[in-house]
Measured scan of single mutants.
Amino acid sequence: HNLTITQGKLFFHYNPKLCLSEIHKMEEVSGTKGRQERNDIALKTNGDQASCENELLKFSYIRTSFDKILLRWEPYWPPDFRDLLGFMLFYKEAPYQNVTEFDGQDACGSNSWTVVDIDPPLRSNDPKSQNHPGWLMRGLKPWTQYAIFVKTLVTFSDERRTYGAKSDIIYVQTDATNPSVPLDPISVSNSSSQIILKWKPPSDPNGNITHYLVFWERQAEDSELFELDYCLKGLKLPSRTWSPPFESEDSQKHNQSEYEDSAGECCSCPKTDSQILKELEESSFRKTFEDYLHNVVFVPRKTSSGTGAEDPRPSRKRRSLGDVGNVTVAVPTVAAFPNTSSTSVPTSPEEHRPFEKVVNKESLVISGLRHFTGYRIELQACNQDTPEERCSVAAYVSARTMPEAKADDIVGPVTHEIFENNVVHLMWQEPKEPNGLIVLYEVSYRRYGDEELHLCVSRKHFALERGCRLRGLSPGNYSVRIRATSLAGNGSWTEPTYFYVTDYLDVPSNIA
Protein backbone atom coordinates (compact mmCIF):
# COMPACT_ATOMS: atom_id res chain seq x y z
CA HIS A 1 0.00 0.00 0.00
CA ASN A 2 1.14 3.52 -0.75
CA LEU A 3 1.27 5.87 2.23
CA THR A 4 1.71 9.61 1.81
CA ILE A 5 1.66 12.14 4.64
CA THR A 6 1.14 15.51 2.98
CA GLN A 7 1.27 17.51 6.19
CA GLY A 8 2.65 16.77 9.63
CA LYS A 9 5.65 14.79 10.72
CA LEU A 10 6.71 11.54 12.47
CA PHE A 11 7.20 11.13 16.19
CA PHE A 12 8.99 7.99 17.56
CA HIS A 13 9.93 7.50 21.20
CA TYR A 14 10.35 4.50 23.55
CA ASN A 15 10.45 1.72 20.97
CA PRO A 16 13.30 -0.45 22.33
CA LYS A 17 12.78 -3.23 19.77
CA LEU A 18 12.39 -0.92 16.74
CA CYS A 19 15.62 -0.24 14.88
CA LEU A 20 16.34 3.26 13.63
CA SER A 21 16.87 1.90 10.14
CA GLU A 22 13.21 0.88 10.02
CA ILE A 23 12.16 4.38 11.16
CA HIS A 24 14.27 5.94 8.43
CA LYS A 25 12.56 3.67 5.89
CA MET A 26 9.25 4.96 7.17
CA GLU A 27 10.43 8.51 6.51
CA GLU A 28 11.25 7.59 2.93
CA VAL A 29 7.98 5.86 2.05
CA SER A 30 5.77 8.44 3.76
CA GLY A 31 7.45 11.46 2.23
CA THR A 32 8.22 13.10 5.57
CA LYS A 33 11.97 13.03 5.36
CA GLY A 34 13.45 16.34 6.45
CA ARG A 35 10.38 17.53 8.36
CA GLN A 36 11.32 15.97 11.70
CA GLU A 37 13.23 17.93 14.23
CA ARG A 38 16.17 16.44 16.16
CA ASN A 39 14.09 15.35 19.16
CA ASP A 40 11.13 13.93 17.21
CA ILE A 41 12.96 10.64 16.66
CA ALA A 42 14.73 9.67 19.89
CA LEU A 43 18.13 8.10 19.33
CA LYS A 44 18.42 6.60 22.82
CA THR A 45 14.96 5.05 23.30
CA ASN A 46 14.43 3.54 19.85
CA GLY A 47 16.18 0.25 19.14
CA ASP A 48 18.21 0.34 22.33
CA GLN A 49 17.22 -3.30 23.11
CA ALA A 50 17.41 -4.61 19.56
CA SER A 51 20.23 -5.96 17.46
CA CYS A 52 20.04 -3.72 14.45
CA GLU A 53 22.24 -5.13 11.72
CA ASN A 54 23.32 -3.62 8.49
CA GLU A 55 25.85 -6.23 7.31
CA LEU A 56 25.40 -9.82 6.15
CA LEU A 57 27.13 -12.68 7.96
CA LYS A 58 28.01 -15.67 5.81
CA PHE A 59 28.63 -19.21 7.02
CA SER A 60 32.06 -20.48 6.04
CA TYR A 61 31.94 -24.09 7.29
CA ILE A 62 29.13 -26.57 7.98
CA ARG A 63 29.63 -30.17 9.06
CA THR A 64 26.96 -32.59 10.27
CA SER A 65 26.63 -35.86 12.14
CA PHE A 66 23.51 -37.68 13.28
CA ASP A 67 23.16 -35.57 16.46
CA LYS A 68 25.51 -32.61 15.95
CA ILE A 69 26.06 -29.68 13.60
CA LEU A 70 29.36 -27.78 13.53
CA LEU A 71 29.07 -24.22 12.25
CA ARG A 72 31.60 -21.50 11.50
CA TRP A 73 30.98 -18.08 10.00
CA GLU A 74 33.04 -15.21 8.71
CA PRO A 75 34.57 -12.95 11.37
CA TYR A 76 32.92 -9.64 12.09
CA TRP A 77 34.30 -6.73 14.11
CA PRO A 78 32.62 -3.31 14.49
CA PRO A 79 34.66 -0.10 14.13
CA ASP A 80 35.31 -0.25 17.84
CA PHE A 81 35.92 -3.97 18.42
CA ARG A 82 35.10 -3.51 22.11
CA ASP A 83 31.44 -3.00 21.16
CA LEU A 84 31.13 -6.66 20.05
CA LEU A 85 29.79 -8.61 23.04
CA GLY A 86 29.31 -11.85 21.13
CA PHE A 87 26.98 -13.69 18.79
CA MET A 88 23.49 -15.09 19.17
CA LEU A 89 22.81 -18.38 17.38
CA PHE A 90 19.15 -19.17 16.68
CA TYR A 91 17.93 -22.61 15.61
CA LYS A 92 14.81 -24.76 15.61
CA GLU A 93 13.34 -27.77 13.83
CA ALA A 94 11.98 -26.86 10.41
CA PRO A 95 10.24 -29.60 8.40
CA TYR A 96 9.66 -27.08 5.61
CA GLN A 97 11.87 -24.29 4.33
CA ASN A 98 9.40 -21.48 5.00
CA VAL A 99 10.64 -20.20 8.36
CA THR A 100 10.96 -16.51 9.23
CA GLU A 101 12.82 -14.87 12.06
CA PHE A 102 9.62 -13.77 13.75
CA ASP A 103 7.72 -17.08 13.76
CA GLY A 104 5.99 -17.74 17.06
CA GLN A 105 6.82 -14.36 18.54
CA ASP A 106 4.43 -12.99 21.14
CA ALA A 107 3.91 -9.66 22.88
CA CYS A 108 6.29 -10.62 25.68
CA GLY A 109 9.20 -11.03 23.30
CA SER A 110 9.47 -14.82 23.45
CA ASN A 111 9.54 -16.90 20.29
CA SER A 112 9.96 -20.46 19.06
CA TRP A 113 13.72 -20.29 18.52
CA THR A 114 16.39 -21.85 20.70
CA VAL A 115 19.04 -19.20 21.39
CA VAL A 116 22.71 -19.78 22.21
CA ASP A 117 24.97 -16.94 23.37
CA ILE A 118 28.49 -17.29 21.96
CA ASP A 119 31.55 -15.34 23.08
CA PRO A 120 33.55 -13.57 20.37
CA PRO A 121 36.84 -15.20 19.35
CA LEU A 122 40.22 -13.79 20.25
CA ARG A 123 40.99 -10.83 18.05
CA SER A 124 44.15 -11.01 15.98
CA ASN A 125 46.32 -8.01 15.24
CA ASP A 126 46.46 -9.07 11.62
CA PRO A 127 43.12 -8.23 9.94
CA LYS A 128 43.72 -10.92 7.29
CA SER A 129 44.07 -13.79 9.77
CA GLN A 130 41.09 -13.35 12.05
CA ASN A 131 39.66 -16.45 13.71
CA HIS A 132 36.30 -17.61 12.43
CA PRO A 133 33.74 -17.82 15.24
CA GLY A 134 31.63 -20.95 15.44
CA TRP A 135 29.58 -23.31 17.55
CA LEU A 136 29.00 -27.05 17.91
CA MET A 137 25.27 -27.76 18.22
CA ARG A 138 24.69 -30.90 20.30
CA GLY A 139 21.78 -33.10 21.27
CA LEU A 140 19.98 -32.80 17.95
CA LYS A 141 17.58 -35.30 16.45
CA PRO A 142 18.86 -37.57 13.68
CA TRP A 143 17.63 -37.03 10.13
CA THR A 144 15.95 -33.75 11.07
CA GLN A 145 16.08 -30.42 9.23
CA TYR A 146 16.94 -27.35 11.28
CA ALA A 147 16.57 -23.67 10.46
CA ILE A 148 19.60 -21.68 11.65
CA PHE A 149 20.74 -18.08 11.63
CA VAL A 150 23.22 -16.03 13.63
CA LYS A 151 23.51 -12.35 14.45
CA THR A 152 25.81 -10.12 16.45
CA LEU A 153 25.28 -8.71 19.91
CA VAL A 154 26.78 -5.22 20.26
CA THR A 155 26.80 -2.55 22.95
CA PHE A 156 24.97 0.74 22.91
CA SER A 157 26.78 3.39 20.86
CA ASP A 158 26.77 6.95 22.08
CA GLU A 159 27.12 8.18 18.54
CA ARG A 160 24.07 6.04 17.64
CA ARG A 161 25.85 4.56 14.71
CA THR A 162 23.75 1.57 13.72
CA TYR A 163 26.01 -1.35 13.03
CA GLY A 164 25.87 -5.10 13.42
CA ALA A 165 25.54 -8.16 11.22
CA LYS A 166 23.10 -11.00 10.69
CA SER A 167 23.07 -14.06 8.47
CA ASP A 168 20.32 -15.35 6.27
CA ILE A 169 18.31 -18.31 7.53
CA ILE A 170 19.91 -21.53 6.34
CA TYR A 171 18.54 -25.08 6.50
CA VAL A 172 20.76 -27.95 7.60
CA GLN A 173 19.72 -31.58 8.00
CA THR A 174 21.41 -33.94 10.43
CA ASP A 175 22.66 -37.30 9.22
CA ALA A 176 20.79 -40.57 9.46
CA THR A 177 21.65 -43.20 12.05
CA ASN A 178 20.40 -46.58 13.17
CA PRO A 179 16.62 -46.66 13.52
CA SER A 180 14.84 -47.77 16.66
CA VAL A 181 13.39 -51.27 16.86
CA PRO A 182 10.29 -52.18 14.84
CA LEU A 183 7.15 -51.95 16.95
CA ASP A 184 4.57 -54.56 17.92
CA PRO A 185 5.82 -57.64 16.04
CA ILE A 186 3.13 -60.33 15.90
CA SER A 187 3.68 -63.87 14.64
CA VAL A 188 1.03 -66.47 13.94
CA SER A 189 0.87 -69.78 12.12
CA ASN A 190 -1.72 -70.47 9.47
CA SER A 191 -0.49 -73.94 8.48
CA SER A 192 1.94 -76.63 9.52
CA SER A 193 4.72 -75.12 7.40
CA GLN A 194 4.14 -71.35 7.50
CA ILE A 195 4.38 -68.47 9.96
CA ILE A 196 2.94 -65.04 9.21
CA LEU A 197 4.86 -62.12 10.69
CA LYS A 198 3.49 -58.58 10.96
CA TRP A 199 4.94 -55.47 12.58
CA LYS A 200 4.78 -51.68 12.68
CA PRO A 201 7.49 -49.24 11.57
CA PRO A 202 9.95 -47.90 14.17
CA SER A 203 8.89 -44.89 16.19
CA ASP A 204 12.22 -43.24 15.31
CA PRO A 205 13.24 -44.24 11.77
CA ASN A 206 16.24 -41.84 11.92
CA GLY A 207 16.32 -41.92 8.14
CA ASN A 208 14.30 -43.40 5.29
CA ILE A 209 13.49 -47.04 6.04
CA THR A 210 14.72 -48.96 3.01
CA HIS A 211 14.08 -52.54 4.10
CA TYR A 212 13.66 -54.97 6.96
CA LEU A 213 15.71 -58.06 7.75
CA VAL A 214 13.90 -61.09 9.14
CA PHE A 215 15.91 -64.00 10.54
CA TRP A 216 14.38 -67.18 11.88
CA GLU A 217 15.89 -70.01 13.84
CA ARG A 218 14.46 -73.35 14.87
CA GLN A 219 14.31 -73.77 18.63
CA ALA A 220 15.14 -76.99 20.45
CA GLU A 221 12.52 -78.41 22.77
CA ASP A 222 13.07 -78.16 26.52
CA SER A 223 15.66 -80.61 27.80
CA GLU A 224 13.30 -81.86 30.51
CA LEU A 225 11.07 -83.35 27.81
CA PHE A 226 13.85 -85.80 27.00
CA GLU A 227 14.68 -86.62 30.62
CA LEU A 228 11.39 -86.97 32.50
CA ASP A 229 9.32 -90.15 32.57
CA TYR A 230 5.78 -89.00 31.90
CA CYS A 231 4.42 -92.44 32.68
CA LEU A 232 4.99 -91.81 36.39
CA LYS A 233 1.80 -91.25 38.33
CA GLY A 234 1.04 -87.61 39.04
CA LEU A 235 3.28 -86.22 36.30
CA LYS A 236 1.24 -84.08 33.96
CA LEU A 237 1.69 -84.61 30.25
CA PRO A 238 3.45 -81.68 28.54
CA SER A 239 1.67 -79.83 25.79
CA ARG A 240 2.52 -77.04 23.41
CA THR A 241 0.15 -74.82 21.48
CA TRP A 242 0.75 -73.24 18.13
CA SER A 243 0.37 -69.53 17.50
CA PRO A 244 -3.31 -68.72 16.83
CA PRO A 245 -4.31 -66.91 13.65
CA PHE A 246 -4.81 -63.16 13.49
CA GLU A 247 -8.07 -61.65 14.59
CA SER A 248 -10.22 -60.10 11.91
CA GLU A 249 -9.22 -56.71 10.65
CA ASP A 250 -12.37 -55.14 12.06
CA SER A 251 -11.55 -56.27 15.57
CA GLN A 252 -8.11 -54.73 15.31
CA LYS A 253 -9.29 -51.22 14.48
CA HIS A 254 -8.18 -48.66 17.01
CA ASN A 255 -10.48 -46.24 18.75
CA GLN A 256 -13.46 -48.58 18.45
CA SER A 257 -16.13 -49.29 21.02
CA GLU A 258 -15.95 -52.65 22.77
CA TYR A 259 -19.70 -53.02 22.69
CA GLU A 260 -21.70 -53.58 19.56
CA ASP A 261 -25.27 -52.64 19.01
CA SER A 262 -27.41 -55.73 18.66
CA ALA A 263 -29.34 -54.02 15.87
CA GLY A 264 -26.25 -53.73 13.67
CA GLU A 265 -23.01 -51.84 13.36
CA CYS A 266 -22.10 -49.20 15.89
CA CYS A 267 -19.96 -46.13 15.56
CA SER A 268 -16.66 -45.86 17.37
CA CYS A 269 -16.45 -43.85 20.55
CA PRO A 270 -13.97 -40.98 20.34
CA LYS A 271 -11.14 -41.01 22.83
CA THR A 272 -11.17 -38.46 25.61
CA ASP A 273 -8.34 -35.99 26.15
CA SER A 274 -7.18 -37.94 29.19
CA GLN A 275 -7.01 -41.18 27.18
CA ILE A 276 -5.02 -39.50 24.41
CA LEU A 277 -2.66 -37.92 26.96
CA LYS A 278 -2.18 -41.27 28.67
CA GLU A 279 -1.34 -42.96 25.36
CA LEU A 280 1.19 -40.24 24.55
CA GLU A 281 2.82 -40.66 27.97
CA GLU A 282 2.98 -44.44 27.51
CA SER A 283 4.49 -44.02 24.05
CA SER A 284 7.09 -41.58 25.38
CA PHE A 285 7.96 -43.91 28.24
CA ARG A 286 8.30 -46.86 25.88
CA LYS A 287 10.67 -44.94 23.61
CA THR A 288 12.77 -43.82 26.58
CA PHE A 289 12.89 -47.34 27.96
CA GLU A 290 13.88 -48.77 24.56
CA ASP A 291 16.69 -46.25 24.27
CA TYR A 292 17.87 -47.22 27.76
CA LEU A 293 17.91 -50.90 26.85
CA HIS A 294 19.79 -50.23 23.63
CA ASN A 295 22.44 -48.17 25.40
CA VAL A 296 22.87 -50.30 28.53
CA VAL A 297 21.88 -53.88 27.83
CA PHE A 298 23.06 -54.43 24.27
CA VAL A 299 26.82 -54.37 23.80
CA PRO A 300 28.01 -53.83 20.21
CA ARG A 301 30.11 -56.59 18.69
CA LYS A 302 33.77 -55.88 18.17
CA THR A 303 34.67 -55.69 14.53
CA SER A 304 37.85 -57.16 13.20
CA SER A 305 40.92 -54.96 13.47
CA GLY A 306 44.00 -54.79 11.34
CA THR A 307 45.69 -57.51 13.42
CA GLY A 308 43.98 -60.30 11.50
CA ALA A 309 41.47 -61.20 14.21
CA GLU A 310 38.27 -62.60 12.75
CA ASP A 311 34.83 -61.22 13.37
CA PRO A 312 33.01 -63.84 15.48
CA ARG A 313 29.69 -63.20 13.75
CA PRO A 314 28.57 -65.83 11.24
CA SER A 315 28.36 -64.53 7.72
CA ARG A 316 24.92 -63.98 6.28
CA LYS A 317 23.90 -66.29 3.49
CA ARG A 318 20.64 -66.01 1.60
CA ARG A 319 18.66 -69.21 1.28
CA SER A 320 15.58 -70.06 -0.64
CA LEU A 321 12.49 -70.58 1.45
CA GLY A 322 12.33 -74.19 0.32
CA ASP A 323 15.48 -75.00 2.27
CA VAL A 324 14.23 -73.64 5.57
CA GLY A 325 12.56 -76.83 6.74
CA ASN A 326 15.87 -78.55 7.47
CA VAL A 327 17.63 -75.71 9.17
CA THR A 328 18.87 -77.61 12.19
CA VAL A 329 21.06 -80.65 12.68
CA ALA A 330 19.15 -83.76 13.74
CA VAL A 331 20.79 -86.03 16.31
CA PRO A 332 19.36 -89.40 17.39
CA THR A 333 18.16 -89.64 20.98
CA VAL A 334 20.10 -92.85 21.63
CA ALA A 335 22.96 -93.62 19.28
CA ALA A 336 22.69 -97.40 19.70
CA PHE A 337 19.20 -97.58 18.22
CA PRO A 338 18.94 -96.07 14.75
CA ASN A 339 15.16 -96.46 14.52
CA THR A 340 14.46 -93.73 17.08
CA SER A 341 13.32 -90.38 15.71
CA SER A 342 15.59 -87.38 15.35
CA THR A 343 13.53 -84.92 17.37
CA SER A 344 16.37 -83.62 19.51
CA VAL A 345 17.41 -80.42 17.80
CA PRO A 346 20.69 -78.95 19.05
CA THR A 347 21.50 -76.12 16.69
CA SER A 348 25.06 -75.72 15.54
CA PRO A 349 26.38 -72.25 16.40
CA GLU A 350 28.33 -72.16 13.13
CA GLU A 351 25.24 -72.71 11.02
CA HIS A 352 24.03 -69.86 8.85
CA ARG A 353 20.59 -68.66 9.79
CA PRO A 354 18.11 -68.24 6.96
CA PHE A 355 16.83 -64.72 6.45
CA GLU A 356 14.66 -62.70 4.14
CA LYS A 357 14.92 -59.08 3.03
CA VAL A 358 11.55 -57.31 3.09
CA VAL A 359 11.06 -54.12 1.06
CA ASN A 360 8.10 -51.71 1.04
CA LYS A 361 5.89 -53.66 3.42
CA GLU A 362 5.56 -54.61 7.09
CA SER A 363 4.69 -58.30 6.80
CA LEU A 364 6.23 -61.57 5.69
CA VAL A 365 5.07 -65.14 5.19
CA ILE A 366 7.85 -67.54 6.20
CA SER A 367 7.37 -70.84 4.38
CA GLY A 368 9.06 -74.21 4.26
CA LEU A 369 9.10 -74.68 8.04
CA ARG A 370 8.87 -77.91 10.01
CA HIS A 371 5.48 -78.77 11.42
CA PHE A 372 4.71 -78.08 15.09
CA THR A 373 8.12 -76.59 15.74
CA GLY A 374 9.00 -73.49 17.71
CA TYR A 375 10.90 -70.73 15.92
CA ARG A 376 12.57 -67.62 17.24
CA ILE A 377 12.19 -64.76 14.79
CA GLU A 378 14.48 -61.74 14.75
CA LEU A 379 13.35 -58.52 13.08
CA GLN A 380 15.52 -55.51 12.22
CA ALA A 381 14.69 -52.22 10.51
CA CYS A 382 17.30 -50.74 8.17
CA ASN A 383 17.54 -47.28 6.62
CA GLN A 384 20.60 -47.91 4.47
CA ASP A 385 21.55 -50.77 2.19
CA THR A 386 24.90 -49.75 0.73
CA PRO A 387 27.82 -49.41 1.21
CA GLU A 388 26.94 -51.26 4.42
CA GLU A 389 23.67 -51.96 6.14
CA ARG A 390 22.60 -49.64 8.93
CA CYS A 391 20.03 -51.50 10.98
CA SER A 392 18.32 -51.32 14.33
CA VAL A 393 18.66 -53.52 17.35
CA ALA A 394 16.61 -56.66 16.80
CA ALA A 395 13.07 -57.19 18.02
CA TYR A 396 12.34 -60.81 18.92
CA VAL A 397 9.16 -62.84 18.71
CA SER A 398 8.47 -66.56 18.93
CA ALA A 399 5.96 -68.72 17.13
CA ARG A 400 5.14 -72.40 16.67
CA THR A 401 3.79 -73.90 13.47
CA MET A 402 0.56 -75.87 13.44
CA PRO A 403 0.62 -79.67 13.86
CA GLU A 404 0.66 -81.95 10.86
CA ALA A 405 -2.20 -84.40 10.55
CA LYS A 406 -1.15 -88.05 10.96
CA ALA A 407 2.44 -87.07 11.76
CA ASP A 408 2.16 -88.89 15.11
CA ASP A 409 0.80 -92.11 13.60
CA ILE A 410 2.98 -95.20 13.91
CA VAL A 411 3.96 -96.34 10.44
CA GLY A 412 4.51 -99.99 9.67
CA PRO A 413 3.42 -103.18 11.40
CA VAL A 414 3.67 -103.91 15.10
CA THR A 415 5.76 -107.07 15.42
CA HIS A 416 6.14 -109.37 18.38
CA GLU A 417 8.45 -112.03 19.71
CA ILE A 418 7.42 -114.56 22.36
CA PHE A 419 9.94 -115.67 24.98
CA GLU A 420 9.83 -118.11 27.83
CA ASN A 421 7.84 -117.41 30.97
CA ASN A 422 5.07 -115.93 28.82
CA VAL A 423 6.99 -112.75 27.97
CA VAL A 424 6.07 -111.01 24.72
CA HIS A 425 8.36 -108.39 23.20
CA LEU A 426 6.38 -105.87 21.12
CA MET A 427 8.31 -103.79 18.57
CA TRP A 428 7.33 -100.87 16.34
CA GLN A 429 8.84 -97.93 14.52
CA GLU A 430 8.68 -94.45 16.05
CA PRO A 431 7.08 -91.79 13.80
CA LYS A 432 9.83 -90.28 11.68
CA GLU A 433 8.60 -86.67 11.78
CA PRO A 434 6.35 -86.31 14.83
CA ASN A 435 4.75 -83.07 15.98
CA GLY A 436 7.49 -81.81 18.24
CA LEU A 437 8.60 -85.05 19.83
CA ILE A 438 7.04 -88.26 21.14
CA VAL A 439 6.82 -88.22 24.94
CA LEU A 440 5.21 -91.64 25.50
CA TYR A 441 3.36 -94.57 23.93
CA GLU A 442 0.09 -96.12 24.99
CA VAL A 443 -0.18 -99.91 24.59
CA SER A 444 -3.70 -101.36 24.80
CA TYR A 445 -3.94 -105.16 24.90
CA ARG A 446 -6.55 -107.72 25.89
CA ARG A 447 -6.99 -111.44 26.01
CA TYR A 448 -10.02 -112.80 24.24
CA GLY A 449 -12.96 -112.59 26.64
CA ASP A 450 -11.17 -110.32 29.17
CA GLU A 451 -11.16 -106.57 29.75
CA GLU A 452 -8.73 -104.33 27.92
CA LEU A 453 -5.52 -103.44 29.77
CA HIS A 454 -3.29 -100.40 29.24
CA LEU A 455 0.45 -99.98 29.53
CA CYS A 456 2.37 -96.68 29.39
CA VAL A 457 5.78 -96.79 27.69
CA SER A 458 8.05 -93.83 28.29
CA ARG A 459 10.37 -92.35 25.71
CA LYS A 460 13.47 -93.69 27.46
CA HIS A 461 11.97 -97.14 27.89
CA PHE A 462 11.10 -97.34 24.21
CA ALA A 463 14.64 -96.33 23.24
CA LEU A 464 16.10 -99.14 25.38
CA GLU A 465 13.69 -101.89 24.33
CA ARG A 466 12.87 -100.80 20.79
CA GLY A 467 9.35 -101.22 22.05
CA CYS A 468 8.15 -102.85 25.28
CA ARG A 469 7.75 -106.25 26.95
CA LEU A 470 4.51 -107.69 28.25
CA ARG A 471 5.17 -110.01 31.18
CA GLY A 472 3.11 -112.52 33.12
CA LEU A 473 0.58 -113.10 30.38
CA SER A 474 -1.94 -115.85 30.80
CA PRO A 475 -2.23 -118.36 27.96
CA GLY A 476 -4.69 -117.38 25.25
CA ASN A 477 -5.34 -115.27 22.18
CA TYR A 478 -4.35 -111.59 22.46
CA SER A 479 -4.88 -108.44 20.45
CA VAL A 480 -2.78 -105.30 20.87
CA ARG A 481 -3.01 -101.69 19.64
CA ILE A 482 -0.49 -98.89 20.09
CA ARG A 483 -0.61 -95.13 19.71
CA ALA A 484 1.95 -92.39 20.22
CA THR A 485 1.49 -89.20 22.22
CA SER A 486 3.42 -86.12 21.11
CA LEU A 487 3.50 -82.51 22.26
CA ALA A 488 0.50 -81.90 20.02
CA GLY A 489 -1.59 -84.72 21.50
CA ASN A 490 -2.42 -88.30 20.65
CA GLY A 491 -1.85 -89.99 17.34
CA SER A 492 -4.07 -92.68 15.84
CA TRP A 493 -4.27 -96.24 17.11
CA THR A 494 -2.55 -98.86 15.02
CA GLU A 495 -4.46 -101.71 13.49
CA PRO A 496 -4.83 -104.61 15.99
CA THR A 497 -2.04 -107.15 16.03
CA TYR A 498 -2.82 -110.69 17.20
CA PHE A 499 -0.66 -113.30 18.90
CA TYR A 500 -1.16 -116.47 20.91
CA VAL A 501 0.50 -117.24 24.23
CA THR A 502 0.83 -120.90 25.16
CA ASP A 503 1.17 -122.37 28.63
CA TYR A 504 4.91 -122.74 29.00
CA LEU A 505 4.35 -125.70 31.42
CA ASP A 506 2.75 -127.68 28.56
CA VAL A 507 5.68 -127.21 26.21
CA PRO A 508 6.88 -130.72 25.10
CA SER A 509 10.33 -131.70 26.30
CA ASN A 510 13.10 -133.01 24.07
CA ILE A 511 14.43 -135.26 26.83
CA ALA A 512 13.74 -138.97 26.17
Results as ranks from 00 to 15, higher is better:
residue 396 Y to I: 04
residue 206 N to T: 04
residue 340 T to G: 07
residue 448 Y to R: 14
residue 208 N to G: 11
residue 217 E to D: 13
residue 390 R to Y: 03
residue 264 G to I: 11
residue 241 T to V: 15
residue 363 S to V: 14
residue 440 L to R: 06
residue 442 E to L: 12
residue 233 K to V: 15
residue 506 D to W: 11
residue 467 G to L: 03
residue 345 V to F: 05
residue 280 L to S: 05
residue 246 F to L: 10
residue 252 Q to V: 10
residue 426 L to S: 02
residue 212 Y to Q: 00
residue 234 G to I: 14
residue 281 E to C: 05
residue 297 V to P: 06
residue 277 L to P: 04
residue 253 K to S: 10
residue 366 I to N: 00
residue 460 K to Y: 05
residue 238 P to H: 04
residue 381 A to M: 02
residue 324 V to T: 05
residue 260 E to I: 12
residue 365 V to P: 09
residue 477 N to Y: 09
residue 314 P to S: 11
residue 317 K to Y: 09
residue 206 N to D: 03
residue 284 S to N: 10
residue 494 T to E: 00
residue 407 A to S: 10
residue 391 C to N: 01
residue 286 R to D: 14
residue 350 E to G: 14
residue 234 G to S: 11
residue 356 E to I: 12
residue 281 E to S: 08
residue 362 E to W: 14
residue 291 D to Y: 15
residue 263 A to Q: 11
residue 235 L to N: 07
residue 475 P to W: 07
residue 219 Q to V: 06
residue 400 R to L: 04
residue 434 P to G: 04
residue 378 E to T: 11
residue 240 R to I: 10
residue 321 L to G: 06
residue 240 R to E: 14
residue 498 Y to E: 10
residue 303 T to A: 08
residue 459 R to G: 07
residue 375 Y to D: 00
residue 234 G to N: 07
residue 405 A to L: 06
residue 217 E to G: 12
residue 388 E to P: 09
residue 506 D to G: 13
residue 377 I to N: 01
residue 254 H to V: 07
residue 267 C to G: 03
residue 207 G to R: 03
residue 231 C to Y: 04
residue 208 N to E: 09
residue 492 S to H: 10
residue 397 V to Y: 09
residue 252 Q to N: 03
residue 462 F to G: 02
residue 344 S to C: 06
residue 316 R to W: 15
residue 289 F to K: 04
residue 350 E to R: 15
residue 397 V to M: 13
residue 349 P to Q: 02
residue 494 T to R: 02
residue 263 A to H: 06
residue 372 F to I: 01
residue 294 H to G: 05
residue 297 V to E: 09
residue 207 G to M: 13
residue 405 A to P: 06
residue 349 P to S: 12
residue 239 S to N: 06
residue 492 S to W: 00
residue 223 S to Q: 10
residue 228 L to N: 08
residue 325 G to W: 14
residue 304 S to T: 07
residue 340 T to F: 13
residue 236 K to W: 09
residue 214 V to P: 00
residue 386 T to N: 08
residue 315 S to D: 08
residue 380 Q to W: 09
residue 252 Q to A: 09
residue 433 E to P: 02
residue 410 I to T: 03
residue 393 V to P: 01
residue 421 N to M: 13
residue 501 V to R: 02
residue 224 E to N: 15
residue 236 K to D: 10
residue 458 S to V: 03
residue 246 F to E: 12
residue 485 T to A: 12
residue 334 V to L: 12
residue 315 S to I: 12
residue 296 V to G: 12
residue 497 T to N: 07
residue 407 A to K: 06
residue 232 L to W: 04
residue 469 R to W: 09
residue 222 D to F: 14
residue 398 S to M: 05
residue 402 M to W: 10
residue 493 W to C: 01
residue 285 F to Q: 11
residue 292 Y to M: 07
residue 366 I to V: 12
residue 441 Y to T: 02
residue 304 S to R: 07
residue 490 N to G: 15
residue 324 V to C: 03
residue 398 S to W: 03
residue 502 T to G: 09
residue 440 L to H: 13
residue 432 K to Y: 09
residue 269 C to D: 08
residue 223 S to D: 12
residue 229 D to C: 05
residue 334 V to W: 13
residue 231 C to H: 03
residue 337 F to I: 08
residue 247 E to A: 10
residue 329 V to R: 07
residue 301 R to Q: 14
residue 322 G to R: 06
residue 394 A to H: 15
residue 316 R to I: 10
residue 446 R to H: 13
residue 482 I to E: 00
residue 439 V to M: 04
residue 340 T to N: 10
residue 322 G to V: 05
residue 209 I to Y: 02
residue 414 V to P: 06
residue 442 E to K: 11
residue 296 V to R: 07
residue 361 K to A: 09
residue 392 S to V: 02
residue 322 G to L: 12
residue 265 E to M: 06
residue 470 L to Y: 01
residue 410 I to S: 07
residue 325 G to P: 07
residue 375 Y to E: 00
residue 471 R to G: 09
residue 354 P to H: 12
residue 298 F to L: 05
residue 246 F to Q: 11
residue 418 I to S: 10
residue 262 S to V: 12
residue 325 G to V: 13
residue 297 V to G: 12
residue 366 I to G: 00
residue 459 R to V: 15
residue 475 P to V: 08
residue 439 V to F: 09
residue 465 E to R: 04
residue 498 Y to M: 11
residue 355 F to R: 05
residue 293 L to S: 04
residue 443 V to M: 05
residue 340 T to Q: 05
residue 397 V to L: 14
residue 499 F to A: 02
residue 424 V to M: 05
residue 295 N to R: 10
residue 390 R to H: 03
residue 261 D to A: 12
residue 307 T to F: 08
residue 509 S to N: 15
residue 241 T to G: 11
residue 328 T to C: 06
residue 359 V to Q: 13
residue 437 L to M: 06
residue 319 R to A: 10
residue 460 K to S: 12
residue 285 F to K: 12
residue 263 A to D: 09
residue 496 P to R: 05
residue 409 D to V: 09
residue 244 P to R: 11
residue 282 E to F: 13
residue 461 H to W: 12
residue 217 E to K: 14
residue 244 P to E: 11
residue 357 K to V: 13
residue 486 S to L: 01
residue 227 E to H: 09
residue 367 S to W: 12
residue 488 A to L: 04
residue 510 N to R: 15
